[in-house]
Design a protein around this nucleic acid. Sequence first.
DNA 1: ATAATGTTGTTAAAAATTTAACACAATTTA
DNA 2: TAAATTGTGTTAAATTTTTAACAACATTAT
Lengths: 214, 214
Amino acid sequence: MAKKDNISMSVIRRLPRYYRFLSDLKDKGIERISSKELSKKIGITASQIRQDLNCFGEFGQQGYGYSIEHLHNEISNILGISTINPTILIGAGNLGRAIATHISFNSIGFELKGIFEKNKDFVGKTIQNVPIYYIDSLEEFCKNNKITVAILCIPREATSEIAKTLYSLGIRNYWNFSHYDLSVKYEDVIVENVHLNDSLMTLCYRISNNFIID
Amino acid sequence: MAKKDNISMSVIRRLPRYYRFLSDLKDKGIERISSKELSKKIGITASQIRQDLNCFGEFGQQGYGYSIEHLHNEISNILGISTINPTILIGAGNLGRAIATHISFNSIGFELKGIFEKNKDFVGKTIQNVPIYYIDSLEEFCKNNKITVAILCIPREATSEIAKTLYSLGIRNYWNFSHYDLSVKYEDVIVENVHLNDSLMTLCYRISNNFIID
DNA sequence: ATAATGTTGTTAAAAATTTAACACAATTTA
DNA sequence: TAAATTGTGTTAAATTTTTAACAACATTAT
């Protein structure tokens, strides 16, 4: 069957999970694993693991299983995390600073080149060696640095205008922490939303209804 | 048909989204909306909106649509966000501080009663009036305050041990930002994971493959 | 009042996703 | 070396989720 051409979002969302567990196993020096064993560790059906992986190629070997090192590399390639996407982050508030500090961008396909903030108190400082600039220099910076990805850590009210600017600069890829729904407004845009509030509300529902499953 | 008893996770994950948009409309002073109009705003099929809501009751009126105020209240009840769950947050690093600052717990069913940290530099301070305690006082505090929810903002290595303690204290509800997979280890636990890394890796895939849709 | 329109709740169909089954091949064991 | 075991890739079945269709009723317009 070789490769599939229409990969579903459900499959894609499981890839980082596989990658994470494989990184672990690799660190532990383990060389091979079967879909069955992996299933037990990850909590995803062996059948589904095999089916997911077979969307991209034939990485296993009958009677042996998967070479962890090899599979790890393959998934890395599939995710495209060795191509570096020049990225900026907007908003050096608590959340923005946490993201800038907490995420190791370089190891997963991004290079954080600048942080932009309207509060001048922060301007001139750096986080993890990434400089914080005043928001006015956004346009020039994006052009000069060929920015393709923006991380939005700004309040909802501010997002509409910033998004307009970024869109006009040709930026089409967003990691969005604001409550503003970008993809409703712009059609040809790739947005990965992180709605922390929604996530917590979901937890609230599940607590109220003793809804376990994961 | 009245109510359904087996609500699927897909439905639950859409509820906060409805709630968010309804809050907006309410703030704007709009009184009624049809599933069709709502569909256009949210980007979810009218059919699906109606089907989702009908899992919980009949909130609309033929020829009229939904009363925004009423529907807003109903969803609030469904989510259970007026029952307050006593909560603690573990880890006052960048991420923990961001969460403590950024989320308005009280409006969505939680009360953040304490923050715990092993770095003594932070102990004694407060964030949004919530005190930061030394990690040693965790057990006593949880018992005294009848804590039912824990937010985990600690590194992966630390999570295993902390989780063990929390579990032994009877805490079964977690909002988990650590890379540690709780639900694989403990069966009877409600975990809402926020894997920021996974989210960003998914974005990376989508950028590499120009995978738009949202 | 009556007709025309709008919009729900609900049932049925379609599409997508997950799980199971198994032929076949490589590995391991005897 | 042969037999038994392991475990993949793949196809088929089952399940879940989404979308479409429409009868029934309320609202609005004439």
